[in-house]
Design a protein around this nucleic acid. Structure first.
Lengths: 187, 187
DNA sequence: AGCTTGTAGCTAACGCCATTAACCAAGGGG
DNA sequence: CCCCTTGGTTAATGGCGTTAGCTACAAGCT
């Protein structure tokens, strides 16, 4: 029959898009096959299986996220950089919940795993933000983990509808950025 | 044949324990049935299905978590209360990852949903912590979300092995508590 | 051009999982 | 003592991921 002209990159990208639409848990090999116009087993010619697909989506997501945060930070420093990074992070998670969910709970296989590379680039972007505050070296790792926890926690809780009560969520996020900025400046 | 003497509570409790052991995603009706010593379809006499089971595990988890945080906070105030609440939260999530995972991404069906009740009690415990800092009323909701994001983010990232690099994780968590305390005291 | 060969697609089949239907026995309340 | 609620059973269905084995497209060599 006519070749569909698929390749690994399109399969992974379509899978990521589908995961964003229907949720990672509902990303099924059948639905992905249908989306790319092929029968289910054909996907295995491009991808090792669901685990492998998930891993590749995670790698894509981490790369994109690192790009987004990295370029948002360009040209800012201090509080502006912090706000830009945090907003870019949250925007990405809310716009691409499936991709982001794929990145959680995976261990990098080795140091040259492209996933670990994306992870490191993301970390570097946040490290650059912290360079705008003159922290003691012993504080940098902790501050990094604090920022990551804040961004990850807020974004995933919002994505999971974890904030039920009244106050405006965007306002809370800006408040949170201001809080972190104040804390970092007075260390 | 001989009755196994099951009831809803034991099924849910065993399901929660199993989810903690093998991960919520690997909690299967078959494995749970085996654990309680019964054939799979028998579970449906006690529980509506996998979704219902998940919901009941989440309710149990939220109740336990609210109890843990609530009693940890008893008799402390200010920084001590904050530290006690945060530690209790993280300990619970790390010791019961399956239960906690079940609580995410669920919408309470109604205002008298027992799950919403547990959720509210947990919220109340954190609100009590904040009462030790004299915040402007307009800040309370934002501060609450900040604390929830911090605790949730840190605990889930640690549980997912999201902290790869070197620094000591417990030390980071204590640093983070101190950071939040300082920020809250200087609002 | 024609043959070859690698490979992207297909169908068929298997096993696991959740769920439902239909049946059966245990055991307490009249 | 009987009955009928109820907690257990086996059998069957449908959806999923995955593998095996086949087919036919298309590129490359002669």
């Amino acid at each position: 029959m006519p070749r569909a002209g698929l390749n690994r990159a399109t399969v992974v990208a379509t899978g990521a898009a589908l995961a964003d639409e229907v949720g990672l848990a509902n990303l099924t090999m059948g639905s992905l096959a249908q989306r790319v116009g092929v029968r289910t087993p054909s996907l295995y010619k491009h991808v090792g299986g669901q685990g492998d697909l998930n891993r590749r989506i995670a790698t894509l997501a981490l790369t994109e996220l690192a790009d987004a945060v990295g370029s948002a930070v360009q040209g800012c420093a201090g509080r502006d950089a912090l706000a830009a990074a945090a907003r870019a992070f949250r925007t990405f998670v809310l716009e691409h919940p499936g991709r982001y969910a794929a990145t959680l709970g995976l261990e990098p296989s080795g140091p040259d795993d492209p996933m670990a590379l994306g992870s490191r680039r993301l970390l570097d972007a946040f490290t650059a933000v912290l360079r705008g505050y003159d922290l003691d070296v012993s504080d940098v790792d902790h501050a990094l983990r604090m920022l990551r926890s804040l961004c990850h926690g807020f974004a995933t809780l919002q994505g999971a509808n974890g904030f039920q009560w009244s106050a405006d969520i965007d306002e809370s996020f800006e408040w949170l950025i201001a809080f972190a900025d104040r804390g970092l400046r007075t260390l």
